[in-house]
């Protein structure tokens, strides 16, 4: 099963408490919320729980935008 970029987008929006209609692939994570370590934990745990994608903290550090995150998710190990 391939990871649908749109599911990642919706999952991220939900994890960060944002209205998903306002989140585009090119939206920066730091635009959605004042990004801190806890919000990154929330994103990682939502991707893990909802989509079975495990991203390490270091990997999350590379993802500036929702599209970056979707690309990382596509390449990430699956449970």
């Amino acid at each position: 099963m391939t990871i649908d970029a749109d599911r990642v987008r919706r999952t991220v929006a939900h994890a960060l408490g944002a209205d998903e209609s306002t989140i585009r692939p090119e939206t920066r994570l730091s635009e959605i919320t004042e990004l801190d370590s806890l919000s990154l934990v929330e994103v990682a745990s939502a991707l893990d729980d909802d989509l079975g994608i495990h991203l390490s903290g270091d990997t999350l550090s590379d993802a500036l935008t929702v599209a970056d995150l979707a690309e990382l998710a596509r390449r990430a190990p699956r449970r």
Binding site: L29, S30, L35, D36, S37, L40, G57, D58, L60, S61, D62, L64
Partner: peptide, 9 residues
């Protein structure tokens, strides 16, 4: 962890 969260973002 602080660098992971803040440096690039």
């Amino acid at each position: 962890p602080a660098y992971v969260s803040h440096l690039v973002h």
